[in-house]
Amino acid sequence: MRRSQQRMRGLTLIELLVAMVIGLVIVLAAVAALTVARRGFNTVDAASQLRDSGRFAADLIQRVGAQTGYRDVFIAAGLASEDATREANLGGFNNALLDATNPTTASTARTASVVGYGSDILILRYQASQLYSNSEDSTKAAVADQTMIDCAGNTVASVPNPKDADPSQVAQAYDRRIVSIFHVAISQGEPALMCTYSSTGAAPWTTVPVIQGVENFQVLYGVDGVTANAAPAAPTAVPDVPDSYLRADQMTVAGSANNTKANWRRVRSIRIGMVLRSAPGSSQDMAAQTFWPFGAAKGSATGEAGTAFANSNDMGTSFQPTPDGRLRQTVSFTIHLRNDQGL
């Protein structure tokens, strides 16, 4: 019986404690590995979403930007000359919040405490294209070919169908342009690239979010023969290549609305820069960072990357967000305006 009792003896307390410690170490190692894998997955997923959002934003703005200044052939043929008092096809505001009532003519300056500080407003105008017109009855609208969209992706069903012999009707029809406005505002608690649009260029205006997480939106305008805050010089030839890039506030000529509009008609390209951010907790790096929305080009051979378009008078061209555990990505590109803006 003594031998049987010895064979049936269990673990000692020390052995049990050792086994528990070993098991706890294994569990902690598994939890740590799972946490690291989870954080890595979140980072990779957030980076992928940022790239997708950046590509979509660039594709949309480029498509709408390429439409800027388009005139339907039936209306362009009836315009004898460009009216200097007519609103230009391009416009914008620097470091501004959109005015919901008068989005094309008024804005509010952003303050440093507002999310999206330094972000600009871009205003684009263009006509829809006719599929065919009703030449027998000019009171009826012409059918649109559905190729022109606003910044929300909407098309229009019809466009004005003026009498070619009546210049006033042609001018009124030309003024009825699609307006797409890109700007930054808060949507569902996050900064977003917003689209405000009108199919007629007048109220009612509709605003919808386009891309979530855009906290910095910068615009520069490539102009030909324009000096900041001065009337444009008379062109010696048909201008189509920009020789400098200006901010929206540099296009304004004090006391002369017509000269301001003339400056906007000299825009030949648009330079866009954005900073997009992911959801909180997606970044494993909490260090402070500086972002250059207009890209990595240097202002000089010895300059820091990104300083080519950065300016202390243009808030947001050098962007330093508070470290908050978010991934961020810059997107920059240039749109060449292929349509005549009406000199």
Rank of each mutant, 00 (worst) to 15 (best):
M1I: 10
S4Y: 10
Q5Y: 12
Q6R: 14
R7N: 12
R9Y: 06
G10Y: 06
L11Q: 10
L17H: 08
V18C: 04
V18M: 10
V18R: 00
I22C: 06
L24H: 05
V25E: 04
V25D: 02
L28I: 14
A30D: 09
A32I: 12
T35F: 14
V36Y: 10
V36F: 09
N42F: 07
T43V: 02
T43K: 05
A46G: 04
S48K: 14
D52L: 15
G54F: 08
G54T: 07
R55L: 10
F56N: 09
D59A: 15
Q62M: 11
Q62L: 08
A66F: 15
Q67C: 13
T68D: 03
Y70T: 08
R71D: 08
R71C: 08
D72P: 03
D72C: 02
V73E: 12
F74I: 11
F74T: 12
F74H: 13
A76R: 08
A76C: 02
D83H: 01
R86I: 04
N89H: 09
N94Q: 14
D99E: 03
A100R: 11
T101Q: 11
A106S: 13
A106I: 05
I123Y: 00
L124Y: 03
L124T: 07
L124V: 07
Y126W: 04
Y126T: 02
Q127L: 10
A128H: 10
S129G: 11
D137C: 07
D137R: 08
A142D: 04
A142N: 00
D145L: 05
M148L: 08
A152F: 12
A152L: 09
A152V: 11
S158H: 08
P162K: 04
K163R: 10
Q169C: 06
V170C: 04
A171Y: 07
D175A: 12
R176I: 13
R177P: 08
V179T: 14
S180Q: 06
V184M: 03
Q188D: 09
Q188C: 07
G189T: 02
G189W: 04
E190G: 00
E190K: 09
P191D: 01
P191S: 02
L193D: 06
L193F: 05
M194T: 04
T196A: 09
S198M: 10
G201A: 04
G201Q: 03
G201D: 04
A203I: 06
W205E: 06
V208Q: 13
I211E: 05
Q212C: 06
G213D: 02
E215Y: 01
Q218T: 00
Y221Q: 01
G222E: 01
N229K: 11
A231I: 03
P239Y: 13
D240H: 15
V241D: 09
P242G: 07
D243P: 06
S244M: 00
Y245K: 03
Y245G: 00
Q250W: 00
Q250G: 01
T252F: 05
V253K: 00
V253A: 01
N258L: 08
A262K: 11
R265W: 10
R265Y: 09
M274G: 01
V275A: 02
L276M: 13
L276E: 04
A279G: 03
P280L: 06
Q284K: 13
M286L: 13
A288F: 00
T290S: 08
F291M: 15
P293E: 05
S300F: 03
A308R: 12
M315R: 13
G316Q: 01
F319E: 05
P321K: 03
T330Y: 01
H336V: 14
L337H: 13
D340L: 14
Q341H: 15
